[in-house]
Nucleic acid binder design. Structure first.
Lengths: 181, 181
DNA sequence: CCTTAACTTCACAAATTTGTGAAAGTAGCG
DNA sequence: CGCTACTTTCACAAATTTGTGAAGTTAAGG
């Protein structure tokens, strides 16, 4: 978590150098944009909060506090985020507290897992081609869709490799499994 | 629309060569997969129905009939699909009937327009970097996210070009503006 | 112009989703 | 072992979304 070493009565910059209000506004704004794109509301908020946290890791209580929601809501959101592999759950050894931590390279991973969805769709679409007949206009159209998705999946691989390369040139630190300062 | 030249009492293959029930199952199944991926239910169903239609084009009445929904629901769904540029609305000249037609290369177009979303997110994320400070761990993480999205957008361009090439090698017919047989 | 076919809008009912408080599990720690 | 700190589950209330019927609007065709 990000320790707040001081809280000014104006709600402005604290000793930790963060303007808590501004950070919260950012979190809410980005969360709402993710929600518009289809993610559940609470999941978006939890994710955004973690994204804006220095450790990329918060406890249930911290999340509940920061987002003003009940532990139950945190539990639900975190469950979802875990399911879709955007957040990992860690038990702090010697404590009964869980920590929720952003997966390394979340976006990379999340995008890569779009792959799964595409595969599923492809399978359904192939069935559609079979049902409609590949020589009918509709069948042909769907076959083209399948081809496009296959193409996308193939491209994805190369793209991810190129990102790895590109990333290095940008000088981002390599990921160790544990980003604590 | 796809004319049903005959309807057998078993609901099996008609003279048009389509097994109406099987087609409907396909439509519903694919629609439901799109819904799971975040699209509104009725919009998914309408879209899937058009996808499985030989002309890729149906009237409001045909859609209402095929999907067993009210004209109002069709109106809503079609409105949405028009908004996100997946379906076009055409007026049959000399008639008060609208036709709704799949946009050419829907997937290509739809994917390309993901671009818009990314740009919006990037802008919010840049604001986040500013607020958190680009030298803080959180700021750096978000900056990396921005970099990844920028990379994605750049890649998207090349990818779409390559698809154009690839598509030709697959022998799909060029798109004229009007795919009627 | 009037009729009428078609689409849209609106108010509402139904269904679904969302978030909560409270009870019930779990697992550290004495 | 059992106390206690934490998390999860459950039943429910609230809010939101979804789809409908019916009234309203527009424009083709007589």
């Amino acid at each position: 978590m990000t320790s707040e070493t001081g809280t000014s009565e104006t709600g402005r910059t604290t000793r930790s150098g963060r303007d808590a209000e501004a950070v919260s506004r950012f979190v809410e704004r980005f969360a709402s944009e993710m929600t518009e794109a289809g993610m559940q509301r609470m999941a978006s908020r939890v994710f955004a909060a973690l994204l804006a946290d220095d450790d990329g890791s918060m406890t249930s209580a911290e999340l509940a506090m920061a987002l003003q929601i009940s532990p139950a809501a945190v539990s639900g959101a975190v469950n979802y985020l875990t399911q879709v592999s955007m957040v990992g759950r860690e038990r702090e050894p010697g404590s009964r507290r869980d920590r929720y931590r952003l997966i390394d390279e979340v976006w990379f991973t999340t995008f890569a897992s779009r792959d799964r969805v595409l595969t599923r769709w492809e399978s359904t679409l192939r069935e559609g081609v079979r049902i409609l007949g590949k020589d009918t206009p509709a069948g042909a159209r769907i076959a083209e869709t399948v081809a496009f998705f296959e193409f996308l999946q193939a491209e994805l691989v190369g793209m991810m490799d190129r990102w790895g390369e590109h990333r290095k040139t940008l000088g981002f630190p390599a990921h160790d499994g544990h980003a604590d300062a």
